[in-house]
Design a protein around this nucleic acid. Structure first.
Length: 299
RNA sequence: UUAGUGCAAAGGAU
């Protein structure tokens, strides 16, 4: 059965879902009885492809066959219902799980909280965060990352500071993702200097800043018109061998444009194209804004 | 970890 489970999982992940279904159907004939892992794999595979109703039907079949549902399969259902925009069904699954006496685990809480936050429901997100702690689950680095990210997107970047220190106090080590999100949060809450310092902290902790880390700080500096510093950091990143991408170039172009330093904006777009990077619609938008701004100044 | 998380172009730009 385990071999079959591995095959089914691989087929699902390889987007060969129909083959996975066929294999599943043929298990009986091969003398294999699907177990809860078999069901979970396929339920998740269906859900990922947006075939959530089929996933749910298979879940019901799994119950009929006497397999006790666990947190893994519930997580998959919740996540995929939310992803399909059916948050009510997602919430319903969570309640159903509790009603059946199945205990959520940390992963389930993390995902459930993420789903709710992505819906913009930060109060419910906070509620879940508190609930998991009440039930004795220690939030991990992902929990904090998810919460921070959700709050920042909802315009509550002010909480970055508090959460960052909460992580430190609880001995929760930040990883690259967590640092990048924290940097973003500091930039969005008027603490760019703090964000800048985190680049150094990343190096010290063994998580060297990535293009995203640099990009976030460069953007943060550019947004508050500290373009010379943004440019220095941009050069620094290049000197460290970081391959800068369209997003970072666009940030700088936008920044220079906003303060009327249009020549520099042009130089940057030129450099970008020389490196074989294609400006995208955002990039052109930044430049367009700059030109409009320059026009206004002329008048 | 044989199945579910912060990467479905996700995290940073307009």
């Amino acid at each position: 059965v385990m071999t079959m489970n591995i095959m089914i999982d691989r087929l699902c992940k390889g987007k060969k879902l129909d083959e996975a279904c066929k294999l599943f159907e043929s298990l009986r004939a091969k003398g294999c009885t699907p177990d809860s892992v078999t069901y979970s794999s396929l339920i998740d595979g269906l859900g990922r492809q947006g075939r959530i109703d089929e996933a749910y039907k298979l879940f019901e079949k799994m119950l009929d066959k006497g397999h006790a549902p666990n947190a893994v399969v519930y997580t998959s259902l919740i996540k995929n219902f939310f992803k399909c925009g059916r948050k009510d069904d997602g919430h319903k699954i969570f309640k159903d799980m509790i009603r059946r006496g199945c205990k959520p685990d940390l992963t389930l809480y993390n995902i459930y909280m993420d789903c709710v936050l992505r819906e913009g429901d930060i109060n419910k997100g906070r509620e879940i965060f508190e609930e998991m702690k009440q039930y004795g689950y220690a939030p991990d680095v992902r929990t904090y990352s998810i919460l921070m990210h959700g709050l920042i997107k909802a315009g509550e970047a002010r909480e970055t500071y508090k959460l960052y220190y909460a992580m430190k106090e609880r001995g929760c080590e930040l990883d690259t993702h967590a640092y990048n999100i924290t940097i973003h949060g500091f930039c969005k809450s008027g603490q760019v200097n703090k964000a800048y310092q985190l680049l150094e902290e990343m190096r010290l902790k063994g998580y060297p800043p990535t293009v995203v880390s640099y990009g976030a700080v460069i953007d943060g500096l550019a947004k508050i018109d500290r373009l010379d510093e943004a440019y220095m950091l941009f050069e620094e990143a290049k000197s460290k061998g970081i391959v800068l991408n369209v997003v970072v170039y666009s940030s700088l172009i936008d920044g220079f444009g906003k303060v009327g330093r249009i020549d520099e904006a042009y130089l940057i777009i030129e450099e970008m194209m020389q490196k074989g990077l294609n400006p995208n619609v955002y990039t052109w938008n930044c430049l367009l804004d700059a030109l409009v701004k320059a026009e206004e100044i002329n008048e």
